[in-house]
């Protein structure tokens, strides 16, 4: 039994690593896997080393981190809010981040860092706002998951309205920049972004894995969870904030990449993993694999142009999701 599980993990990690090597080797200049590995170690042709180390590796690693962050965030939220349709973007995180980024564009911010910070601030404000709305709407200030979900959706809708108003009379350049960002991309990534996001994913994801057993119990419902000794409100709030932090960090790094947080936990569950500790860890690996694969598709389908990454993940995600819905029925 344990050996069986170990094999699963080993196979999943091997698939991710192989995909990463292939992704690093694929592009305008094709590089053989062996050359890729050599270049990672610093050996071989200097130009190849530069392409691999400075251009493609940060991009692939960022894609993997974004996928891991969104997958973990989605897995934790679905369990805590007891809803298979919950995902980080449904909770106003995306809307808030987009408002932040659009404001940054409107103010002619051009640096990657400034837009990222604005997006993160927007995401954080939206999450706090959703929590406050849920608290005001909930009976006696209790964090009812349905109220929380609804508050997130409302904040998201409000944010979308703000974006449309902001972009209605904006110059073409701003609209284009904002739109591209809203469709998600890991192009032109720096090692700095990779470093920042990996910090968030390690700390935020690690904390979610640590509290995963509480999520197992929360998924039973408020009353059973309370009967089993969980402080339902505090625990829900903690996991909500951690998940939002993770999602906000990925949005700040790569824009909006939809469907990953929604479908990845379902893929892991379909593999028979139901406890949240392995589920969240598995969602990190599968999420990373999915986004690296989607990015590979996004930049190879129509070279030299690129498809928006968020659109590719959605195109890959929608059929899967519909199949899931059918199976659930």
């Amino acid at each position: 039994m344990i050996e069986h599980r170990t094999w699963h993990w080993a196979a999943m990690l091997l698939l991710l690593m192989t995909l990463c090597v292939i992704a690093v080797g694929t592009g305008a200049i094709a590089i053989a896997p062996r050359e890729v590995l050599r270049a990672i170690g610093g050996g071989g042709d200097a130009a190849v080393v530069s392409i691999v180390r400075n251009l493609r590796m940060p991009r692939i690693l960022l894609a993997a981190l974004v996928g891991a962050g969104l997958g973990m965030s989605g897995g934790a939220l679905q369990g805590t809010l007891r809803n298979g349709l919950a995902e980080p973007y449904l909770l106003g995180v995306s809307g808030g981040a987009a408002v932040g980024a659009v404001i940054a564009f409107a103010l002619h911010a051009v640096s990657e860092g400034a837009i990222g910070i604005a997006a993160f601030a927007g995401a954080a404000s939206a999450v706090v706002l959703a929590l406050l709305v849920a608290r005001a709407a909930g009976a006696g200030g209790r964090g009812d998951p349905r109220t929380l979900l609804m508050a997130g959706v409302v904040i998201g809708a409000f944010a979308n309205a703000v974006i449309m108003i902001a972009l209605a009379n904006a110059p073409a350049n701003t609209v284009r920049g904002a739109l591209w960002w809203m469709m998600g991309s890991v192009a032109d990534t720096s090692w700095r972004s990779v470093g920042t996001l990996s910090l968030y994913v390690l700390i935020g994801g690690g904390a979610l894995v640590y509290w995963a057993r509480e999520i197992d119990v929360l998924a039973l419902g408020d009353e059973p969870a309370a009967a089993l000794g969980v402080n339902v409100e505090a625990s829900t709030r903690r996991i909500y904030l951690l998940s939002a932090l993770l999602a906000g960090a990925t949005v700040a790094a790569a824009g909006l990449i939809g469907f990953v947080g929604l479908i990845v936990p379902h893929i892991v569950r379909a593999a028979g993993i139901r406890q949240h500790r392995p589920l969240i860890a598995g969602a990190a690996v599968i999420g990373a694999t999915l986004v690296v694969a989607a990015d590979l598709v996004a930049r190879t389908v129509r070279p030299p142009g690129e498809l928006p990454l968020g659109a590719v993940t959605a195109v890959l995600g929608v059929p899967f999701f519909l199949a899931q819905l059918r199976r659930a029925r």
């Binding site: 998924a219 009353e223 059973p224 139901r274």
Partner: peptide, 8 residues
């Protein structure tokens, strides 16, 4: 408790 419905 009376009410309980596991989400998954």
């Amino acid at each position: 408790p009376q009410r309980e419905e596991p989400a998954f």
